[in-house]
Amino acid sequence: MSAVQREALEADRRAEAELLAYETEWQAVWRRFRRHRMALVAAVVLSLIALSAIFAPLIAPYPPDHLDLSAILASPSAAHPLGTDQLGRDVLSRLLYAGRVSLAVGVSAAFIAMVLGTLVGSISGYLGGVTDTLLMRFVDVMLSVPTLFLIIDAESFFQVNAVMLTALIGFTSWMGVSRLVRGQFLALKSREFVEAARAEGARGWRIVTHHLLPNALAPVIVNGTLSVGVAIITESALSFLGFGIQPPTASWGNMLSQFQNVIYQQPTLVLYPGIMIFLTVLCVNLIGDGLRDALDPRLRI
């Protein structure tokens, strides 16, 4: 018996033992998630970032758009722990408030993408046939139309603010999720347990919600966490191109591109929003990674 084989058997045995202990599904997920130490650390860090953003009005030493033209680009001091920006605003305060915007953009856009993607993917995967073909070609269309123009177009109807931008990012990034869900559905549809449910008389909607979706959800959740990071990065890229969230509202993205303009004058400034974006997106990705491992039902080590 090779080492590998022994390990496999060991794993099986332990898995059985766990089942016997009537461990609930979510407890198991949590236990496996904890194994991914970096994910655990990331969850703690991200919680801290989120808390600081949520409680920004309590923590921030100044209102975010309080100008002080007598102290522009000031170096860090007791009054301004991270210094001030080009208009003499407290960088720490803005950073905290920007966190609310950036996190909200990231989470909401990812949520929109997940819901839309799951919906389209489920319908496409479950119904198959013409519906599937039509929806998947629609995905091709969505992948091909120039999304920058959606934002420009939106400008003629609304003032493009954080909410609009979030919706736009969400509505243009669900295509990956939909393909993923569809793929899962196609694979699961012919599995024994679905066949069995059908044989027992379960019908369409019930099969989708009770049998297919729960089993397809793992990659969706993982993908969802990753999309949070992608949305935050997308917002910063749009800011760089001049199409992001516009001042005076602060986001990490627009602070980053704003501070790049003074990089030679006050080189440390650009690090703050950069590090916040980096840390947040890194944590989100690590959590996604931990979830991926934890939700993988075959993974019982």
Partner: peptide, 22 residues
């Protein structure tokens, strides 16, 4: 590998590009 990969993915490219250039 995880840290390196996710590290890269978590940096806005215009920022990284500028840092390297500086």
């Amino acid at each position: 590998a995880t840290i390196l990969s996710f590290g890269g993915i978590s940096i806005p490219d215009f920022w990284l590009g500028l840092m390297l250039m500086i």
